[in-house]
Design a binder for these strands. Structure first.
Lengths: 173, 173
DNA sequence: TATTGTTATACTCTATAACTATA
DNA sequence: TATAGTTATAGAGTATAACAATA
């Protein structure tokens, strides 16, 4: 689905008529309220809309670090698993190998990661963070953690935890 | 993120050694278990993975109808709101107008919808389902509803309802 | 002047096939 | 023969600018 993100429709509030102090019923000023109730009863629809909303916040807050969601995921996975291979990264994040190549190349060229020869497998290469990458990942992780409560401001901490647990049950196993 | 979907890695079970009846510890047969705990603590990561998992099931089950998620959403929105305009559809589903054009054109060419002149606005056109579109949408909606419990088989009905309510709180308002 | 529907277009994301070098 | 990393490329999804017709 498409999300206009930053460019939001202003949805003109349309000022109340002259003398009317309190307009009891908006009559039918602009739009007949669309019926979206069935779509909103579907898990897929809700999951997609929610994911896009959260990712939209993520993109804004992570822009200063120059990290998009997948780049942050890769960097964080390497941070927590030094020496991880590209294949393992692909499996863990559900990325196809050809699509990871460009991401790894970019992170390498930015000096955030270093590729070392794998100790036992000559075909593979272990991925590690550079000192710079370590600093950036640390800051980005703090931001990602803080961003949570921003993106889910309508939820209590307990609801947020419950939501994440339920989401994991959907895609794990 | 990318999801290999149908083409899953077999992740070789690697048969136990010859005479060993019960191997107590798998020693270190294949992979050192990756640490993904931090990523799994993030709402955005979980929402994205869950959404992709559900959409993957949706794609398979809806393939017989030739409907992708957005096409189903548009068709369903028109079914529940006869005479809706393209603009209203874009707003409701967060689709950009230029991207809806091709979807509407495709549904029209397949004979699923008809475009009628708008009663009051000469620029707009009301969208309606054809008889064929009505039948297809009805069957597709039944499938979409049934698919829910398939995609969320790890959840109880109560958990599924709770999950959808929490997701709506994330993206609405 | 603003809005609806549209074209053209660019950029990103996702997916498949095939190559190389190692195992 | 199979696997890790890679290249090339095709296809889908998403985004902006600009236009004609109408309000």
């Amino acid at each position: 689905m498409s999300a206009p993100k930053s460019t939001r429709a202003p949805s003109k509030p349309k000022a109340p008529r002259s003398g009317a102090v309190a307009t009891p019923a908006p009559v039918a000023t602009a739009e007949p309220p669309l019926n979206t109730s069935y779509l909103e009863s579907l898990l897929g629809y809700n999951a997609r809309r929610a994911a896009l909303a959260v990712i939209s916040v993520f993109l804004k807050r992570m822009a200063p670090f120059g990290l998009k969601p997948v780049e942050f995921s890769v960097l964080t996975l390497i941070a927590h698993n030094p020496g991880i291979t590209s294949r393992q990264t692909c499996s863990a994040l559900d990325i196809l190998p050809p699509n990871l190549v460009g991401i790894i190349k970019s992170l390498d060229q930015r000096g955030l990661i270093v590729r070392k020869a794998h100790p036992t497998d000559g075909r593979a290469q272990g991925l590690h963070l550079s000192a710079h990458g370590r600093r950036l990942q640390h800051e980005a992780q703090l931001t990602a953690t803080a961003l949570e409560h921003d993106a889910a401001h309508a939820l209590t901490p307990g609801e947020l935890d419950k939501l994440k647990a339920l989401l994991r049950k959907v895609y794990q196993n």
